[in-house]
Nucleic acid binder design. Structure first.
Lengths: 160, 160
DNA sequence: GTCGTTTTGCAATTTTGTTTCGTTGGAGCC
DNA sequence: GGCTCCAACGAAACAAAATTGCAAAACGAC
């Protein structure tokens, strides 16, 4: 972890972020016009927010079906022992699996919720054997197969 | 919507995509060196894949906590009637809510799984009133609050 | 009001993206 | 084989965007 020495974000920053999280290929000059700043000013703000960790990454979003990775699966995992050590172990194990796109540690009837993308059911089966059946701290897991990815994004709504 | 006339992706394309989905600010020249192509060749491939819809978007990933949107919530929704019309209605309703980042139509004990990000619990409560209690086709919903976003991404594993 | 700090805009520079164009390599055909 | 056609390539020229340096304006503290 680096050092997130956050300066507060003002209205300019919010507008810039709103644009970038929709399309980060937008030229700084265009952003500048949209928010009422010069291109260098925009650039400095982007740099600052990147260093502060407000902007975590700049990525291309791909279509899974175009890559033969057409199955999306949700899994609720319930563990047996919830000691700090065991939880950390589970977290790092889940984080390390490339098929696992998202992993959350949650309250409620489950302990972890995973979002998994695989080419075929056989791959998911192999994954369950490795991650769940091969882990004796996993009490139970429930699988949900996505029939339709109605909406997929990481965009954060920005009011103002 | 244009026409996604997909050409098959070769090994070069895969390598390029792998780089772009990790960091799409990587210069084309650098990508070219990494994959063994010239910058224009890389540029043409990126353009083609964008037109074909393989590359869906280019976005900045923001840190929700830096924006005061610190609560991530999962919801499993079960509906009463599963006619095509009702399902479509639910889909468009969920897709329209900005707080809902992801929505999947799934098989299993639930019908929909939602990933929601809100500033505070009060906002989620308001949302439940609007979306679930205000919709008489919703039979039941289960809420999971994320204590830790262990891993969050949309990166698709690319073998080869 | 004055000083010091911060942030800005402009202009010059550097880097990156894009287009042009001539060449190469392969598929299909005579 | 020899031929054309087509698709993709790379080198170089070109256009656009990002980045840097610097002086001026805006903001705060005193």
């Amino acid at each position: 972890m680096s050092r997130p020495v956050k300066s507060p974000l003002d209205a300019f920053d919010h507008k810039i972020l709103a644009i970038l999280q929709r399309d980060n290929t937008t030229p700084q000059r265009t952003i500048g016009e949209a928010v009422g700043l010069s291109a260098p000013a925009v650039q400095r703000r982007i740099k600052r927010m990147t260093e502060d960790g407000v902007i975590r990454a700049n990525v291309a979003v791909l279509d899974p079906t175009a890559l033969g990775q057409s199955i999306t699966i949700f899994v609720e995992v319930e563990v047996i022992s919830e000691t700090a050590k065991q939880i950390e172990e589970a977290k790092s194990q889940f984080a390390a699996a490339p098929e696992i796109q998202q992993c959350y540690y949650v309250t409620g009837e489950a302990d972890f919720i995973l979002v998994i993308v695989v080419p075929a059911m056989a791959d998911y089966e192999a994954l369950t054997r490795r991650l769940f059946f091969g882990n004796n701290n996993v009490k139970r897991f429930r699988t949900f197969v996505a029939m339709d990815r109605v909406k997929v994004g990481l965009s954060i709504p920005m009011e103002r």
